[in-house]
Amino acid sequence: MDCRVVVEAAVPVYDVETADEAVRIAISKTGEMLNPDLNYVEIDMGKRGCPHCGNELEPAFIAADEGLVALELEMTVFNVERDEHASRIARKEIGQRLQNIPLEVLVVETIEEAEEKEEAEDDSRETDEASDDEEALPEFEDLMDEK
């Protein structure tokens, strides 16, 4: 089974003034740490929410020109037995390169592309067979009767 794993990372950044600047620096810093070994990991801004009111917050918290940025790192793990196995592999692979950065697994989704492709091919074959029957050319005698 193949799984898509999303891991949240808390990346510290220094000498920043705005949340946008902190996010850009954090993405760049994380990309440098992951490449070239894990260049297949997708890096995106994290989503944070207020625990009291539920409003969405900026992905970076800035205080005294230092920031902590929430990033989401997404990777696909192949040939695993369970979701927990995929989660451990993703944390280990990413954690080895992002030392001293806290990680938390947010999402583990099973990828069932092979099964979906087979079903889509079966459906298209059935549709093609039905359309072949409908679009068959009329018999010669039928054409002659119309004139």
Rank of each mutant, 00 (worst) to 15 (best):
V69F: 03
V5K: 01
C53R: 07
V77S: 00
A19Y: 11
A90D: 05
I27K: 08
E42I: 10
R91I: 03
T76D: 06
I25P: 07
F61H: 12
A26T: 09
G46D: 10
N55R: 11
L73Y: 03
L34E: 04
V7Q: 04
V77P: 06
G54W: 14
R91Y: 06
V23R: 12
R24I: 15
A9P: 07
K29F: 14
D15E: 01
A9W: 06
V16M: 08
T18H: 09
E58G: 15
G67S: 09
R4N: 08
V69C: 13
E56Y: 00
H85M: 00
C53W: 14
V16D: 02
A60C: 10
F78E: 10
H85G: 01
T76I: 07
D20C: 03
L71H: 06
V16N: 02
G31W: 11
V16R: 00
C53H: 13
P36V: 08
A64D: 12
A70Q: 06
Y14H: 02
R24E: 15
A63C: 08
M33L: 08
P51K: 10
A63M: 06
E66M: 15
Y14R: 03
A63S: 09
E81F: 09
R82T: 01
V13E: 01
Y40R: 12
A60Y: 03
D65C: 15
H52M: 10
V7S: 04
V6L: 10
R24N: 11
A64G: 14
N55F: 11
I27S: 00
E81A: 09
E32A: 05
L38C: 07
E42R: 15
V6M: 06
R88Q: 05
V16P: 00
S87Y: 01
K47T: 14
D20R: 03
G67E: 07
E56R: 04
E72V: 15
A22G: 13
K47I: 02
L38V: 01
V80S: 07
M45Y: 14
A10G: 12
M75I: 08
A63D: 15
T30H: 14
F61Q: 14
D83A: 05
L73R: 09
T18Q: 14
A60H: 06
A10R: 08
D83S: 04
V23E: 14
A90R: 02
K29W: 14
S87F: 02
S28K: 09
N79F: 06
I25G: 00
P59A: 11
V80I: 00
R48L: 09
A70N: 10
V13L: 11
R91G: 10
N79C: 03
E74C: 11
D15N: 06
H85R: 03
V11P: 12
P59C: 10
R48D: 01
E72H: 13
R48V: 07
E32Y: 10
D44Q: 15
A64K: 14
A70S: 13
E58N: 14
A10T: 12
G54S: 11
V11N: 10
T18L: 01
N79S: 06
L71I: 09
D44N: 12
D15R: 03
V41Q: 04
E81P: 05
C50A: 10
M33H: 01
R48K: 12
D15M: 04
I89C: 02
E56A: 04
E21R: 12
R88F: 01
A86N: 00
A22S: 12
P59Y: 15
